[in-house]
Simulated assay, not measured.
Amino acid sequence: MPIYMDFHKIANVTIDDVKKAHMADEAIQDKYGVKYHQFWVNQENGSVFCLVEGPDKETCERVHQMAHGNLACALTEVEIGFYEKLMGKEHTVDNGHVKNNDGSEDLGYRNILIASVYGKTRAYGLTDLSQLQRPDWARKIIMQNIPAFNGRELGWEKDDSLIGVFHNATHAIQCALQIQQELIHFEQKQPEIIFKIGISASQPVTQNGDFFKEAIKLAHRLSVTVQDNQILISSLVKKLCRNEELLTKKSSLKFLNEKEEEFVSTLISIAEAKLADQQFDLNRLSNEVCVSRPQLYRKVMSLTGRSPIDFIRDLRMDKALTLLKQKRSNIAEIAYESGFNSSSYFTKCFAEKFGCTPSLFIKTDIA
């Protein structure tokens, strides 16, 4: 049967309250072919999340309604593999209440770390290009550190980014710092790379029924926004981090506030939707994000360390790199899809950023 998670907002909720409601669910659930497995409680903000198995949403909701009347604000179906990667399987359950193995309460928060890495080269032969397409030594460092800090790797189909999921915000930040330190150290002995790390956080289900997808999207946007070889962290991750010493590492970390996150999300959402439009310029961008051009320049420079023009060009380069790796189009088509109206200008920009021409890059057999 399908698996669902729901979200309740209950003022002054207590764990005992939810345990009683869970027992009421269990008392009648067999009659409806439903099984309420477990729940998470965040007493501080009045959030409750339930994991339930049933034939459909309506039947699951009916059990809640008949048992105690606490209807969910949102209920969404989840794919079991995706659920297990995000929520994990290593926990204890006390009368339905999910706890961490150390006995502490699992509030449901999960921290999402996304790391992107690509190589730079002055390639004159196809062998050199293997480091540009997939710097495996760097990816290995990232993948080794995720479980070392109690994280789980999550698959990602959009691009070559690597994702780690962490119960603990402190562990996520420590993992990012360790990755940063090792990549910078080992780069002295390896071909040059550029890496970017973004970290976001969320509870399992949002008011609109989203199950972590918005948190993953935000972490990806942070990894796109951050300056080369740096770490960008959302406001919620900062709030969840209990290690004050980590929060003072301003030379290695940058934290966003909620307004900055909103601006970044709006900026990238608009830019990504318009990347293929060669007529899309800063005037149109500033109009769509509702700021003046001087404000746009100040905000983008402050957040990304790049001018808006350079930032948009980098987004187009990242898209072009992904398209080149897919090898589904020729260079002229990729240039057009990435927002360049000239193949020669696209080639110039690509060579400046990655150190080789698109034509040489596309000749390799490395996916």
Rank of each mutant, 00 (worst) to 15 (best):
L222K: 01
V93N: 09
E84A: 08
D159T: 13
S269T: 15
H171F: 02
E182G: 11
I216N: 11
G155M: 08
Y32H: 14
L253K: 04
E260V: 13
S200H: 07
E258N: 11
P147M: 09
D277I: 14
R134N: 06
K363E: 15
A11I: 02
E333W: 12
L303I: 11
K319L: 12
L232G: 00
F280H: 11
S286P: 03
Q178C: 07
R122F: 09
D160F: 09
P308K: 03
T248H: 02
G103A: 14
G305H: 05
D228M: 13
L218E: 09
F346L: 04
P308L: 15
S359K: 05
S286C: 11
Q43M: 09
Q43R: 13
Q295T: 10
K363Y: 05
S116Y: 10
G69S: 12
Q295F: 01
E245K: 15
G339K: 01
W137Y: 14
L222I: 14
I80A: 08
T206L: 09
V18Q: 00
L256I: 07
E77I: 09
L132T: 01
D30P: 12
G198P: 02
F354A: 05
I28K: 08
P191M: 04
I141Q: 02
M5N: 08
Q178Y: 08
M87H: 12
T364C: 08
G209H: 14
Y83M: 00
M317H: 06
D102H: 04
F280S: 10
I270G: 02
T225P: 00
Y36D: 04
I193Q: 12
G355Y: 05
Y83D: 04
Y124T: 12
Y124Q: 05
V98D: 13
R306H: 10
